[in-house]
Design a protein around this nucleic acid. Structure first.
Lengths: 150, 150
DNA sequence: GTAATTATCTTGACTCATTCAAAATAAATA
DNA sequence: TATTTATTTTGAATGAGTCAAGATAATTAC
C-alpha cells in the first residue's frame, strides 16, 4: 500500500504526476511514524536536499486527500502524519511531553460511529484522542513531587 | 455553576481576582455556545468596549484551567469554547461549513476511556470528534450535484 | 474610607506553522 | 524530440495566538 510501486499506482489512478517530492514524502512518513512536518522536511532532504518546504506541504496535503496518509493534530500541537490509514485506530497524547502512540479501538470495529443523537448529521468518521501521561512523564512526576518544572 | 455568583466563588477559591473581563468572558460564552475567540471578544465589547483581546485570551485560558470552560479545536479550525463541562459529551463537526453540535456519549458514562492497549499511558480523558455533514450541507450537496463550490 | 501592594490589563510588537502567488522546472504526451 | 501544463521553487504574506513593559484596578492592611 505504501510501497514505492503502490504510490505510483495511486497517483496515476488519480491522474496525478509521480514526482520525486511526493515519493520521498511518503517514504519519509513511512520511516518516521507520527512525524511532524519539520521532521518530514528534514528526512526528505537527506535524500533530495533541494526539495522546498512548500513541495512537502503540498505533497502531504495531496497524499492525505488520496488516503495514503492520515493527519493527526491534537490541540496545541502542530500537525503530524502517519501511513496507517483506514483501520479506525486512535491515539494517546502525553499532556506533558506531547509523545504520541497508537491505540486500537476499544470496543471493536467502528463503535464510536454510533453516536446516540447525531442531530441529523451524516457521520463518516469518529476521531478519538486519549489524553494522559506517558510512562516516562509519570515517573518524572512522582520522582520530583513538589517543585516540578511545568 | 456558570452564574455570576458561581464564577466569583470559583475564582476566589483559586485565589484569583474577580475582574470585569473574566466575568464578561464567562457570560459571553454562556450566551454564545461554541463561539470562537473573535465572537467572544465582540460579545464582551458589547458591554465593555475597552477590554483588550489579550485579556479575553487570558480569561479564556484561566477559565478553561479552572474547569469553568472547555476548549474545542477540531483540525483546521480555530478554538471554540463552551460552558458545558464535566459531563463527557462529544461533538459533531460539519466538514463543509464547520458547524458544531453537541453529542452525548454513545455507550454511557465514559466508555471510550477504556482503550484496549494504552502502552502504559495513564489516560484521564477521551476526546471524541465526529466528522460528517450537517443537515443543511447534505441538502446543498444533493441539490447541486456536479459543479458544487468547494 | 484611604493607602499600599501586586495581580491583571492594555498596548503594541512578535512568533511561527501554514498559505499564497509568480516565475521556473520537469513529468507526461504527441 | 518538442510541446504542454502540472508541480516546484522562491520569497513574501497571513493570522491565530503569545510575549513583555508599563499602566491600572482588585484586594489587603491600616
Amino acid at each position: 500500500m505504501t510501497t514505492s510501486e503502490g504510490i505510483e499506482k495511486v497517483l496515476r489512478e488519480a491522474s496525478m504526476r509521480v514526482t520525486r517530492p511526493r515519493v520521498a514524502v511518503l517514504a519519509a512518513v513511512t520511516a518516521h511514524p507520527h512525524a511532524d512536518t519539520e521532521t518530514i522536511i528534514e528526512a526528505v532532504r537527506q535524500e533530495h536536499p533541494l526539495v522546498s518546504h512548500q513541495a512537502v506541504y503540498d505533497s502531504l496535503k495531496l497524499l492525505t486527500n488520496l488516503g495514503l496518509l492520515r493527519q493527526i493534530q491534537p490541540h496545541g500541537h502542530i500537525a503530524r502524519y502517519e501511513t496507517r490509514v483506514g483501520d479506525n485506530h486512535h491515539h494517546v497524547v502525553c499532556r506533558n511531553c506531547g509523545t504520541l502512540a497508537d491505540v486500537d479501538c476499544a470496543v471493536g470495529a467502528a463503535p464510536c460511529l454510533h453516536a446516540s443523537d447525531h442531530h441529523g448529521f451524516s457521520i463518516d468518521e469518529a476521531e478519538v484522542i486519549y489524553w494522559g501521561l506517558c510512562p516516562d512523564c509519570q515517573q518524572a512526576k512522582t520522582a520530583q513531587p513538589a517543585t516540578g518544572t511545568v
